[in-house]
Simulated assay, not measured.
Amino acid sequence: MQRYFTDYPIQKNVSFLVSGNNFHHLIIVMRSKVGDEAEFVAKNHKVFIGKILATADQQAEILPITELKNSAELPVEVTIACGISKGDKSEYIVQKSTELGACHFVFLPTAFSVAKWPAKKINRKIERLQKVAKSAAEQSHRNYVPTVTYVNSLQELKQLPAAFKIVAYEESAKNGEHTQLHHQIEQMQSNSTVLSLFGPEGGLAPNEVTQLQDAGFTSVGLGPRILRAETAPLYLLTAISVYKEMR
């Protein structure tokens, strides 16, 4: 069943109106009709099955009939921070990491970033990535749409609060380090906050990793293989899911 995020404080048996992009997708793309049902996420992240009562003037009247109690959220709140990569890799990271449970995304320039985001285009880039996150959250039946932001430097990133701060470093993997990630995940409790940083193509510079370690980040290896910039965040999220959701 298709899921839609709304800005309404939805209540059972109290109808509300759907318009804009949600109306277009529900009625035009999905060809839903009066009497059909879909899932709607309220402003407070509660989820309801709603029935279409009527459509008129580019709006659909929805009646919430059942509240769904299940949640598809990871038990820990993970922020994925990434050095800017080339092409559409940022969109891939946001889409797939949203499906795997990430809560926040932060993009930033790093020493080895080949791609650059001109200042006048940053807002447009973030808006596009936010739309990707919303679409992926609907597809994967999340209760939350992840946030997407941009910071100008590693210094700004270091100021972000989190109970666990980790940096994925390929040299750690090359040197056979394989215990720190396991140790970090084991210590995470429900609702723990995690800030994780991944480099762009070419990884992070050694002095950047040193700065992060001095700021309280733990350097971790992601297995014995060297991963692409867009693959590394998925490895971390999958590891957290296996440890915290499937054991």
Rank of each mutant, 00 (worst) to 15 (best):
M1E: 07
Y4W: 04
T6S: 14
Y8L: 13
I10N: 02
Q11I: 09
K12P: 03
V14F: 03
G20Q: 12
N21V: 09
N21Q: 13
F23S: 09
H25V: 08
L26G: 04
L26I: 11
I27H: 04
V29E: 06
E37S: 11
E37F: 02
E39R: 14
E39W: 11
V41C: 03
K46R: 15
K46L: 12
F48H: 11
F48L: 13
G50I: 04
I52A: 14
L53Y: 02
T55N: 08
A56N: 14
D57C: 02
Q58W: 00
Q58L: 05
A60V: 13
I62V: 15
T66S: 12
E67T: 09
L68A: 04
K69V: 14
N70G: 03
V76L: 01
V76N: 02
E77F: 08
V78W: 02
T79N: 04
I80C: 10
C82Q: 12
D88W: 01
S90M: 13
S90A: 15
E91R: 10
E91V: 05
E91F: 01
V94L: 07
E99H: 02
E99T: 05
C103S: 11
V106W: 10
F107N: 12
V114M: 04
A115G: 01
A115M: 02
A115K: 01
K116V: 02
R124I: 06
R124N: 08
K125A: 06
E127H: 08
R128D: 10
L129P: 02
Q130I: 01
K134I: 03
S135K: 05
S135A: 15
S135I: 10
A137D: 05
E138W: 06
E138V: 07
E138S: 12
E138M: 10
S140N: 08
Y144N: 05
V145R: 00
P146V: 01
V148M: 07
S153A: 08
E156T: 12
L157D: 10
L157S: 10
Q159T: 11
L160M: 15
P161M: 10
A162V: 04
A163P: 02
F164Y: 11
I166V: 15
V167F: 12
A168I: 11
Y169P: 06
E171Q: 14
S172W: 11
K174A: 10
N175R: 13
G176V: 11
G176L: 10
Q180C: 07
L181H: 09
H182P: 00
H183A: 15
Q184C: 14
Q184E: 14
Q189V: 00
Q189D: 01
L197K: 12
L197Q: 14
F198Q: 14
F198W: 12
P200H: 07
G203N: 11
L204I: 13
A205V: 03
P206R: 13
N207L: 15
N207I: 15
E208C: 14
E208P: 09
V209E: 13
T210P: 00
A215M: 08
G221N: 06
L222N: 06
P224F: 13
R225G: 10
R225T: 13
A232W: 04
Y235E: 13
L237V: 12
L237F: 07
L237S: 09
L237Q: 08
T238A: 15
S241I: 00
S241M: 05
S241R: 05
Y243W: 07
E245H: 00
R247I: 09
